[in-house]
Simulated scan of single mutants.
Amino acid sequence: MTENTAPAKPSVLFVCVHNAGRSQMAAGFLTALGAGNVEVRSAGSEPADQINPTAVEAMLELGIDIRTETPKVLTPDAVKASDVVITMGCGDVCPIFPGKRYEDWKLDDPAGQGIEAVRPIRDDIQARILNLLDELGVTPAPLTPAA
């Protein structure tokens, strides 16, 4: 009997207050670019009722569809189950566990912003995700932008 020696895939949790814009875009990018090689989670300390429609529109421009996602509540279990926890303005309400890798990405909040203001936020998130994939040793998959 042979032992499965494949390394476990890394897991990343994105957290922002409402889990409606920044964290959903980051999760969408990591899901698409990670091509199944990274376990992706997102949550919010005070989840909104729905995803920011402008964030959805901005992601669709790059061929990433996050329309079916829903804001989820942040739980200690989600943090415990993740190797990397990336916060985006959730402040002191994010639970911290020893031994986890934490990053805080300072990003403008897309809430209430038009598409022209959301595109640079989206592009900043994409660049950070590509850097994260490199740090995790995962080769990014190509994106196929919408026609």
Rank of each mutant, 00 (worst) to 15 (best):
W105S: 10
A78C: 03
P95N: 03
S45I: 06
C90A: 15
L130V: 15
D49R: 14
I96C: 00
P71V: 08
P71I: 05
N19K: 13
V73N: 04
A26W: 10
D65F: 01
E103H: 14
R128F: 01
P110H: 04
Q113G: 04
K72G: 07
T54W: 00
D65T: 14
D65H: 10
P98W: 02
P120G: 14
T70M: 02
L62S: 08
F29R: 10
N37Q: 14
D109H: 05
I115K: 11
D49M: 08
E39M: 08
P53M: 00
V84K: 09
Q126W: 03
G63S: 12
L107W: 02
P71L: 05
P53A: 04
C94F: 01
L13Y: 09
V84Q: 06
C90G: 15
V93S: 13
F14C: 04
D123R: 15
G28E: 06
R101T: 13
D49N: 09
F14A: 01
N19T: 15
S82C: 06
P71Q: 06
A58P: 14
C16S: 15
A48I: 08
A43N: 06
N131F: 05
V56C: 09
S42D: 06
K100C: 03
A26Q: 12
Y102I: 07
T31N: 13
R101W: 02
Q24F: 09
I51M: 07
D104K: 10
L33R: 15
E116C: 09
Q126E: 11
